[in-house]
Nucleic acid binder design. Structure first.
Lengths: 198, 198
DNA sequence: TGATTGACTAAGCGCTTGCTTACCATGGCT
DNA sequence: AGCCATGGTAAGCAAGCGCTTAGTCAATCA
């Protein structure tokens, strides 16, 4: 008897990461259960020992991925005092962008395959996305109120800032010249200038 | 006998726009030839009278869509004198963003379904994308040389600027509070501040 | 007028899909 | 020893896939 209430055996993880790679490369509908099973070194039927359906696998990936990003954003925000919105924003953007470069395959699935989810599962994910938006918008709005950030529309600027980070997952390549840190640092500068805080 | 060397009958256009809507909503692999034909009001076989394959349909949409964007960017660039890189950049970003909001369904297909193309067709599209990048990077590099734009890495900044516009196609909704013009104008401001030109 | 052409459809072919069934091997518990 | 839970497989089912075939029909042309 393990102390883990929900044991995550190796095969389950292997299936999930095989699915992540395949979904990122060919999309949810372009990936077959046979692709996933083969990449995890199992027969197609083994997938159903661990996950009830292909969609459930996507849902789990999306849920974990979004939860990670929300946690990352919240941690970045509280790691800098609330009295320093510029510092908070710098930290959030840097960490957000670094994550989307470093984990670009996962981030791709998480951001571009949502339309394959069931209505219920999609709604669950949207709620987490809203949470991320709230944290970032809060920082920007407090910065504007304090006179250290400047934008005519904090709502749209928040969207643009997150958008900039998310899209890194689309274009980032490991073989390229830039490390995740390179991109994160550069984007932090862009973001700060966008709100007149550089 | 028409003067048109290649007559584009109505049905062909209807199929293309039905495909565009379907690909944008459910992705290339999530869309069936029966979906497309039904939306165009025809039998599945009629699709093959006008297009040799489902992939060829995607290729045509991608080609036309990319050509439009390249033309739009080039026209925006030459509509402002070369001696004014700030004005050129403002105009390019504004037009680029407006297009990605206004034609967000088409832009979605054009940017997010490329992996479903054959190798040859993809290479053709990448060449056009490179052309777009060259125009925008040229403006930024000349602006930096002239001392009116500022960025430590014109290459990455160009990428970020295009990325910002492209991602509009992912999140833009007609039902939202913002018109394509609203987004275009706001993003123009963000872009100029990103390169210290506001 | 009769032949030809071009757009279209009903039917369906061969294959692949997501998922299920029936079964098997192993290892820990009583 | 006997049992059964766990995690796996081989085989295959029903449905759906991209695409083809064979043929219809209206407009065009010699």
């Amino acid at each position: 008897m393990s102390s883990d209430p929900e044991p995550l055996p190796d095969a389950r993880t292997r299936l999930a990461s095989a699915a992540l790679d395949a979904f990122a490369a060919k999309g949810f509908h372009g990936t077959t259960t046979r692709d996933i099973a083969a990449a995890a070194g199992m027969s197609p039927a083994a997938l159903y020992v661990h996950h009830p359906s292909k969609e459930a696998l996507l849902h789990e990936l999306a849920l974990v991925g979004h939860a990670q990003v929300l946690a990352l954003v919240e941690e970045a925000a509280v790691s800098v005092p609330e009295s320093d919105p510029v510092g908070q924003l710098a930290r959030v953007v840097e960490d957000f962008v670094r994550h989307h470069a470093r984990a670009h395959l996962g981030a791709r699935v998480v951001n571009y395959e949502l339309s394959a989810l069931t209505e219920d599962h999609l709604a669950e994910i949207q709620a987490i996305r809203h949470g991320i938006d709230v944290v970032v918008r809060g920082i920007i709005e407090r910065g504007v109120a304090a006179g250290v950030l400047h934008t005519p529309d904090p709502h749209m600027t928040t969207l643009a800032m997150l958008s900039l980070g998310i899209d890194v997952a689309r274009w980032y390549r490991e073989e390229g010249a830039w490390s995740p840190d390179d991109v994160a640092v550069h984007y932090r500068g862009l973001a700060l200038r966008m709100v007149g805080a550089a």
